[in-house]
Write a protein that binds this DNA or RNA. Structure first.
Lengths: 117, 117
DNA sequence: CTGCTTTCCCTAGATAATCTAGGTTAGAAG
DNA sequence: CTTCTAACCTAGATTATCTAGGGAAAGCAG
């Protein structure tokens, strides 16, 4: 990578903090999906902006499962590989609604700061 | 606190993660301010939504100063107390622009996920 | 003057989320 | 048979924020 030309790609994974659960839950609202697929979906739907690393994804999925917001089941992927499919539980749906509302309030608040006179 | 009645106030300080610097820098864009004033400004401008704890505020200010984005100077507050006034440096202005752009891209991306079919 | 409240500053340690950097398995493809 | 890729996993590092303390000085109530 040629010296100062490409200024640090600016990692900024920090903003994701606290949002990852929401993104996963929302993605699962469209139907059951395996982990790999979830991260791909987030990547493409966000127009290549949100890139979830595997080291974040799987721990997050296990966390969500432990909290009873998603349920896992082994199955077969579209490519005939073994894959773990996740789906929202009813608790998960409630949690999704809550987190969505919270995100919207938060984003509005930040917007107020950014646009103040 | 009466048993299950008040369900966890849901702390959710997590969303702030990665945004605090932006909020502080943006607040200082309006002029020099002391720490206490910065947090009050963020609180009222955000319509009571964003509440920065002192334990986050002061370390953040020191971090920003260490990185050369803000500069501190002791002075007197409106209430005649000793207070440390911070102002943006030119590096800080550049940083503010960068973080603003990044936030907007991020917020757009999350919005895409939340609104997908 | 005394004591209390408010403003303003500070920090050590806990908590927790994400990332880095590794690794495994099994099907597909050459 | 060898390589590539989809799909899963985790330990440890990093880092931001919060909890929970503490201190000093101005103003105010008694």
């Amino acid at each position: 990578m040629a010296k100062g030309i490409f200024k640090r790609k600016q990692e900024r994974g920090d903003l994701l903090q606290g949002t990852l659960d929401l993104l996963i839950l929302r993605t699962l609202q469209r139907g059951a999906m395996h982990g790999w697929g979830i991260s791909q979906s987030i990547y493409t739907v966000s127009q290549e902006v949100l890139q979830i690393k595997e080291g974040s994804l799987y721990p997050a999925l296990h966390r969500l499962e432990r909290q009873g917001w998603i349920r896992a089941e082994w199955g077969q992927s579209e490519n005939r590989r073994r894959a773990k499919f996740y789906q929202l539980t009813s608790d998960g749906k409630r949690q999704l609604a809550e987190e969505t509302a919270y995100w919207e309030q938060f984003a509005r608040a930040v917007h107020l700061i950014l646009k103040m006179g």
